[in-house]
């Protein structure tokens, strides 16, 4: 890559860790493809759709990890953007059944809302940031809950099936395997964009903010701008993921905006591994499987999720990927920096 000026080869740990995350995501994709093949062979619908839902929520978890893992910002209200994307897509699709118009609308809405909300939330840090993001999401949830035009507490049903025109092929949103594969690709693209941005000087500024925010301005960076950029990026990722929800389920409900949704995303990231990005994907699968398997046996599946959370925090404090990733790093390490 570059001639070595110094004697000892320098290992850029952060770049290495990111490459290890790519490997883990590649494994995830392969597993997804195998799963889809088996699903199609067995003419399954239920599990393919459940897995698609897991992927959609993985996008929300990814957005939480961009904030928590890279900027050290705990958002307890990412459901705001997930729900925003879902509702905007639902409203648009009922008027104009176009996938790209719905996604574009979700993107624009999340940009506008996150810049405004980000200006408010980023005035504070730590616990206060968590509380402000929580509060903003609650306000939005209550507003939707009480808005008749948005279906109030019932939500909105009857979101039509849309064709997703990808140029080379068209996927129907009601095709279990097709939409699963599309969602898998979509979430991987969101992962790739996030991973790319976090591996740039911009991403390093975010890591610096997490490590020692007070020192960052003296390096020539406005921490306020950097944190706002991270917040907006996370919001867009959450909203674009959320926009897929009504396409999968045909409806949206205020629960998408509730604290349970935000809280589950945080649990997903902690279980999967904070600051790994890949952890958001694995964590979401684990959580979705637990929720549905245990949810079918008992109503008290929240207790199980709570226990899972505690067990992870105590025994795998860096989450599943935080535990596995170092071995991958050793495997692929030793190369260039």
């Amino acid at each position: 890559m570059r001639d070595n000026v110094t004697a000892a080869p320098v290992v850029d740990r952060l770049a290495l860790a990111m490459r290890a995350s790519h490997v883990l995501v590649a494994i995830f994709v392969v597993a997804g493809l195998v799963f889809a093949t088996v699903g199609v062979a067995m003419k399954d619908t239920f599990f393919l759709r459940l897995a698609t839902e897991a992927l959609i929520f993985a996008g929300l978890a990814l957005s939480v990890d961009i904030l928590l893992g890279y900027s050290g910002l705990l958002s307890l209200g990412q459901a705001l953007y997930f729900g925003l994307g879902a509702y905007v897509a639902a409203v648009v699709l009922k008027e104009i059944p176009s996938f790209w118009v719905a996604m574009g609308a979700a993107l624009v809405a999340s940009l506008v809302v996150s810049i405004l909300a980000g200006l408010i939330a980023n005035r504070v840090r730590g616990v206060y940031f968590a509380l402000v993001t929580f509060g903003l999401a609650q306000v939005a949830a209550k507003a939707v809950y009480n808005t008749r035009a948005l279906g109030a507490s019932d939500g909105m049903i009857g979101v039509p099936i849309v064709p997703i025109d990808l140029g080379v092929a068209t996927v129907m949103s009601n095709s279990p395997a097709g939409f699963f594969l599309f969602t898998l690709a979509f979430i991987v693209v969101l992962y790739a964009i996030s991973a790319y941005l976090l591996d740039t000087p911009f991403g390093r500024v975010l890591l610096a903010i997490r490590a020692n925010e007070r020192r960052v301005p003296s390096l020539g960076y406005s921490t306020r701008n950097a944190r706002l950029a991270a917040y907006v990026l996370a919001a867009v990722v959450a909203a674009l993921s959320g926009a897929l929800y009504p396409m999968l389920r045909g409806f949206v409900s205020p629960e998408l905006l509730f604290f349970t949704t935000s809280g589950n995303a945080v649990i997903t990231v902690v279980t999967g591994g904070v600051g790994t990005l890949a952890g958001a994907l694995y964590g979401s699968v684990i959580l979705t499987v637990l929720k549905s398997v245990i949810g079918s046996m008992t109503e008290h599946h929240l207790i199980v999720i709570g226990l899972l959370f505690m067990v992870t925090v105590i025994f795998l404090p860096k989450g599943l990927m935080g535990f596995i990733r170092p071995s991958i790093e050793r495997l692929i390490g030793g190369g260039s920096r």
Partner: peptide, 24 residues
């Protein structure tokens, strides 16, 4: 962060701002 990363971060401002969104 490592010594390398501390220095890289601190030297980052020397880089062309156009590279702010290119890989480190």
């Amino acid at each position: 962060l490592t010594v390398f990363e501390n220095l890289r971060l601190a030297a980052q401002r020397l880089e062309n701002p156009m590279r702010f969104l290119l890989p480190v």
